[in-house]
Structure formats: structure tokens, C-alpha cells
Design a protein around this nucleic acid. Structure first.
Lengths: 199, 199
DNA sequence: TTGCAAAACTAACAATCGTTAGTTTAACCG
DNA sequence: CGGTTAAACTAACGATTGTTAGTTTTGCAA
């Protein structure tokens, strides 16, 4: 039936997207050629164009897929009934988990979005700014209520989002720490800080 | 005299390195062509080769210049008589300041070192691992002495170093916050954490 | 002014880039 | 089995890549 055929087609496309994310992650967007991507999929470069429009579309789908997932989760957390510190912890943990589960896509979305062309670049930046803005509002409300330490909300947001990129380094040398322990320690660093409170 | 002639030569080379860092930062290593770099300097691409060996040398000098500067400062801080929390704060502030003062070079060193070719890639990674290792030892000693909260030292180091990359985002939208205030807030986030202590 | 070396230039190389056109193979439906 | 369509293929386009060779210009010393 039509559904099956459609699934087959989208399956192949998903496979290409998956491999593209992997290639972009390893060698960057400009450093990855359509020929090498095709080779990784066991095909020739022009065959890719039976499934996708071009190289840009690959980057665009990767970046916006990630962006929409984070935006959706942010909305869910915002509407939950948790306290602000709890909400922030939920978001931090979601970021870490997403990076564990969709490592290549999140990695590429973090680094290679600059290679998006107009008008997609502007769209992406708008989503990103909106995301950071809503997160900053959350922090600001927390500071105002006294549940969070007094801090510039934008610095807090940029600092947290950047800190999560520690997963990028850790993922390549998993060491002996379990993903769960890594997540817990990173959240602790951001929530409680590094220095022990003076008695 | 010879010194003056030598200075003129190295001046031109420094100028090329400076512009290369700027280009690499904007468009990435593979996204920056020798022709566009030459154009930014008001010259033709082949003329660059009177001063440098090739594109790789540009990346290498940028990355290792940054790496050596951080390594030297780490040694200085290690040998100082400050407490461990103070030492860590000194290093954090040095990172932020370096990123403010040599933004392009640090940015490229953070992102494009992956495009270093053998054997330079291995050398760079060794320096980086050594840096992270010595920093982790410092954290570990702090945890052991009770001055720092109990935390996995590697997570703490990766988290802090990643968090500093918030400067990358902030630098492009300086907003209304002064560099000093930004630095203070970021250090506070990492040292004291986000959540206010429960009374 | 003459001479010399540094540093610019033009022309061009082989390689690779993203992409298009046109053709052949493969898979499924009746 | 014949026909239709999706998806692979080969060949090739024009553009751009890093780099080399060879030549001309520039700037300074004698």
C-alpha cells in the first residue's frame, strides 16, 4: 500500500540524513563531500539526488530537526508545575540526554549551523534566540523569587548551554563514568557550583 | 639592520596569521580558501607562499600558539601559593580574558584543531590531554581537602572549559553587559552554582 | 644610479567540488 | 510475463581548491 512505499522512501532518506550527520560531525559541513557521503552509503554521489534536493537540505533538516525538538521540550517544561530550579534541572538533563541519544545531529546543529544559507540561517537564529530568551526569562523569574542566586540571566543561560557541550568531549572518551553519573555530575556543577560553601 | 628586516618579515607573517584566524573563525578551516584569505590582505593567493609554507601551517601556528599560552599560564598558577579554589578561579578568568583578547585565535583553536594533519594532530591532542589532566588533578586535590564539593574531577574540568565557550556567543552580541561583569557572572555560575542554598 | 633580494605578480597545474543530463538496472503490480 | 516507476548508474559540466613555476615589480644598500 501507499504507506509502505512511503515508508521505504523516507527510510532511505533518514538513512542518508543519519550518515550526513555523522560525516558533518567528523569533518565539518564544508569538509564533507557528497561523494564521500555517498561512498559511506555504498552508492554514487548523483544517486543521492533521487532522495534529497542538495547538500544544503541535509544540513537544514539536521539543524531544524534538533531545534524543533528542543523547542518542543522547552514548551512542555514551561507548562509543567515544577519549581523553577526543578524546571532548569529538567532542561539541563534533557540537553544532556539528547546529546547522548542523537549525538551527531546535536553536535552538527551546535557547530555547523553557520553554514546554513539565507533565509534558513535567519530562521534558525530566530529560533535559537527565542529559545535562549525564554530560558533567560525562566532564570530571571527564579532570581526574582529568591530560589536562584542573583546572576545575569543571559550569562547563566549561555554558560549552562555551553557547559553541556562537555558531552561532546566526553562522548569520544567515555572513560569509566556511566552516562547517568556524567549527567548527575554535570548538573551538580551547574546547580550547586564547584566550591564547597564556607561554614 | 638585520633585526629591522627580520621584524618586517615577521610582521607580515603575523598579519597573515591574524587574518587567517579571522577567516577560519568566520567560515571554518575548510571553508576558507587561500584566495579569499589573500584578498582580505589585498594580495593574490600565490604571494602568501612567500611568507608561509601552506594552509596547514596557518592552522598549526594558530592552534599551538594558543595551546602554549594556556599551558604556560597553567604552570604559573600551579606554582603560585593561592588556595585551590583561588587557583581555579584564576584559570577561569584567564580563559575568559584570553578569549576576549585573542578571540579569533582561541575560537579557531577550540573548533578547528580537528583539521590538523598528522603528526600535529596527535601533538595537539597530547597537550590538550595534559592540560585537562593537570587541571583535573587540581580539582581532585581540592575535593580531597574539602575545599571543593565532591564531584568527578573530569566532569568538572570539561564542564568548566566548555562553559567558557559562552564567550563565543556573547562576543557576537555584546549586549549591554561589560566584559568584566560577564566574566564575574560566569565565574560565579561555575564557582557558586545557580541555585540559592536552602536555609 | 646600480644591483640585489624580498615580495609581489600572471599563468597554470591536477584534483576535487556540487550538481545536471541521460541511461540502465531493479522491484513491484496487474 | 509486460509495463511502470523508483533508484541506481556513467559521463560530464563549470567552478573552485591548494599549490608550483616562472616573471615582474618594489624597496633598500652601496
Amino acid at each position: 500500500m501507499a504507506g509502505v512505499a512511503s515508508n521505504k522512501k523516507t527510510d532511505r532518506k533518514q538513512q542518508i540524513l543519519h550518515e550526513a550527520a555523522h560525516g558533518f560531525m567528523q569533518h565539518g559541513y564544508t569538509g564533507t563531500s557528497m561523494r564521500s557521503l555517498a561512498a559511506a552509503l555504498g552508492m554514487e554521489a548523483p544517486s543521492l539526488y533521487n532522495h534529497i534536493k542538495g547538500k544544503q537540505e541535509l544540513l537544514r533538516q539536521i539543524c531544524f530537526g534538533v531545534a524543533h525538538r528542543f523547542m518542543a521540550q522547552l514548551t512542555i517544561v514551561e507548562q509543567s508545575e515544577a519549581s523553577i530550579p526543578q524546571k532548569i534541572e529538567l532542561i539541563l538533563r534533557f540537553h544532556v540526554q539528547q546529546m547522548q541519544q542523537h549525538f551527531a545531529a546535536v553536535y552538527v546543529s551546535n557547530r555547523d549551523w553557520k553554514h546554513l544559507q539565507a533565509p534558513h540561517l535567519a530562521d534558525f537564529l530566530q529560533i535559537r534566540r527565542q529559545y535562549e530568551g525564554r530560558l533567560a526569562s525562566m532564570v530571571e523569574a527564579g532570581v526574582h523569587s529568591g530560589l536562584l542566586q542573583p546572576i545575569d540571566s543571559r550569562v547563566a543561560v549561555l554558560g549552562m548551554l555551553s557547559a553541556i557541550r562537555a558531552v561532546e568531549v566526553w562522548k569520544k572518551h567515555p572513560a569509566q563514568l556511566s552516562p547517568q553519573r556524567f549527567e548527575d555530575n554535570l548538573v551538580q556543577l551547574l546547580v550547586c557550583g564547584l566550591v564547597a560553601p564556607t561554614k
